[in-house]
Amino acid sequence: MANVDGSWNTVAKTPMGDQAAVLTVSSNGDSFTGTFSGAMGNTEVKDGKVDGDRLTFAIDITVPMPMTLTGDVTVDGDSMNGTVTAGAFGAFPLTGTRA
């Protein structure tokens, strides 16, 4: 299993521009808890799942409008790459480096 725990400096490439946030991950077996904190606010990770080096999760945001985002990233050492999906708005690239 990959070492996924810690704080990650992430950037999502969205139509509103690059959105930076810190994702914290605390794994426990095949699940994880954490927070997602950035300019758009702070929120708890929901449904955090760990599958080897892959993380999937959901976060509820209120800015710019209330919606649930879903993330799917793969950790490779001190970097992560994947996508964040914003419902009908589609999926956007999400990258991160270990803080």
Rank of each mutant, 00 (worst) to 15 (best):
G71A: 08
T43H: 04
G38Y: 12
M67A: 10
A99P: 02
T10P: 08
G29Q: 06
A21T: 03
Q19H: 14
T56E: 10
Q19Y: 15
M1V: 14
F32E: 01
V4P: 08
A88R: 10
D18P: 08
A21L: 06
S79Q: 12
S26W: 01
D18N: 13
F92M: 13
K49V: 02
K46N: 09
K46G: 04
T43W: 05
A99C: 03
T14Q: 13
T97N: 15
S31G: 08
D30E: 12
G96L: 11
D53V: 00
D47L: 03
T14A: 10
V22I: 10
A88F: 12
D53M: 09
T95Y: 12
A88H: 07
G87S: 10
G6W: 07
F89R: 02
D76V: 00
L69W: 00
M80Q: 14
D72L: 06
S7I: 01
M40C: 07
D30M: 07
P93L: 13
Q19P: 01
P66T: 05
R98T: 05
F32V: 00
W8P: 09
T56W: 06
A39P: 12
T56H: 05
S79D: 15
K13I: 02
F36E: 08
M80V: 08
G82D: 11
T70R: 08
T85D: 13
N28W: 06
T10I: 10
T33V: 02
D47M: 03
A99I: 06
V50G: 00
T43K: 06
T14D: 09
F92Q: 12
P93A: 15
S27T: 05
I61H: 03
A39Q: 15
K46A: 09
A88V: 05
L23F: 05
I61W: 04
G6L: 03
P66Q: 11
A99F: 07
V4W: 07
F89W: 03
G90D: 05
S27N: 10
S7Q: 14
S31D: 13
W8Y: 14
V63I: 02
M16F: 15
S27I: 06
G17S: 11
D47A: 05
D5T: 00
V22A: 12
V25T: 09
T97S: 13
G29M: 01
T35Q: 13
L69M: 03
G77Y: 07
D76E: 15
P93F: 14
T62A: 14
Q19K: 11
G96P: 12
D72F: 06
G52V: 03
G77T: 05
T33F: 03
W8I: 02
T10R: 06
T68N: 09
D78C: 07
G77C: 07
A2H: 06
G29V: 00
Q19A: 10
V22H: 08
D5G: 04
Q19C: 04
T95C: 08
M80Y: 09
W8T: 03
P64W: 02
R54Y: 10
V50R: 00
V11D: 14
M67N: 05
M16G: 13
T62E: 15
T83F: 12
L69K: 00
G41N: 11
K46E: 13
A21G: 03
F32H: 00
G17R: 04
G90W: 00
G90R: 07
E44F: 14
K46S: 11
A88C: 01
T14R: 13
K13E: 15
T24D: 08
A12C: 11
S26K: 14
G48H: 01
T35I: 02
V73L: 11
